[in-house]
Design a protein around this nucleic acid. Sequence first.
DNA 1: CAGTGGTCTAGACCACGGT
DNA 2: CCGTGGTCTAGACCACTGT
Lengths: 233, 233
Amino acid sequence: MPSETSFGWQDARDEALRRIRARDWPPGELIPNEADLAAEWGCARATVNRALRDLAEAGLLERRRKGGTRVVLTPLRKATLEIPVIRQEVVARGATHGYALIDRAPGPGPAEVCRRMGLAAGTGLLRVRALHLSDGAPHVYEDRWLNPAAVPAVLDLDLARVDANSWLVQNVAFTRGDLALGAVAADAAIADALRCAPGSAVFAMERITWTADQAITLVTQHYAPGYRMKTSF
Amino acid sequence: MPSETSFGWQDARDEALRRIRARDWPPGELIPNEADLAAEWGCARATVNRALRDLAEAGLLERRRKGGTRVVLTPLRKATLEIPVIRQEVVARGATHGYALIDRAPGPGPAEVCRRMGLAAGTGLLRVRALHLSDGAPHVYEDRWLNPAAVPAVLDLDLARVDANSWLVQNVAFTRGDLALGAVAADAAIADALRCAPGSAVFAMERITWTADQAITLVTQHYAPGYRMKTSF
DNA sequence: CAGTGGTCTAGACCACGGT
DNA sequence: CCGTGGTCTAGACCACTGT
């Protein structure tokens, strides 16, 4: 007789996925409600809920109270990018990580930087430029603006010995961030730091991190030519 | 008297988050088990479970059976990238989307392409190069390899009228993909298509999409200079 | 072995939002 | 109004794994 283990939420998710892919539940169409599926699959409604919620988070279903659940027309794919802490990323690859402070300069921030950070123009900031090395070779050139109003301790930090990236991650609790990825041509400073030709195509990642209301830092990290950021979806 | 509504899973998550940020639960330390927290917060264990599972998925907690739950040392931040369907992305910005087929050529795939797609060297593929326009201006130059063995219908597709991107999304059920982001210097073909200077720094996104076992397509999309891909975390 | 998280259940109440 | 998903509960069994 059926000594099957129970129909778990992953089974429910897989079966729903199968029906979506098989066009058994066509794009844009309503699917049966949770109670009916629970009855059909011989499990509790909570189990169906967990499964369908998972698919909804993955972007395959749209769920609305009273409106029911329907298959999304064009499944928008989402990929999860892990934002690397450079040092960890390098070490994880089995390479040795090096760090060199290039420049540290307190002073008023440029208007554009202050605006992006939600600060009054001319607010006093700390600019830090540094280079990360991987097995001795230039890996990432980092141009950072720090907001001392949000993190006073950075003014006393020995940035020649500790990289801001690692220190912030372990000592400042930020709540959210904005991220932008792009490509830029290496200017003199970048080319000099990364030891590449001026004008080289460089992958750049810009981040602004915030506490509840204050910007902590705006940083742009320029990766040595050829770098590729990889993930799956 | 306490007419408070019940202590829901989001309340539990917020309180746990507060304790983590306040170093009330220090990095690396074990936190109380679910049963204890449920008792303390006056809710069911399932509610605590939902809250802590959420924080674990966010990368703030590590949970192991019997091992308990501990605060992650260096909260690895994750950002979710939405992989754009170019046409939709353009239209969503309120711009008009244009599409032009540049080249369509069946033939054996280069060794490197076949290798990346997990195919035997020299497998017959279909190469399609196309340009997406935003309000008439070059936006994305797309260089694509399609595997007819996985999607025979592409051979009969009128790629001059339909862009492969949109068609695939709506007609092929893929299961997973690999993604790589980087910067490249525009070669002649790219510069010509995007109407930029050769050597310009161009943001490139490469994707390989798979069904259960077969590669469907390998595509590299080159964005016009200045493009930034944005998200939050 | 024993403690912890992972999951399922049956039932209940509620919030939202089409009709 | 009333159907649907969102969530909570109390209890139970199980899977994994540290000790």
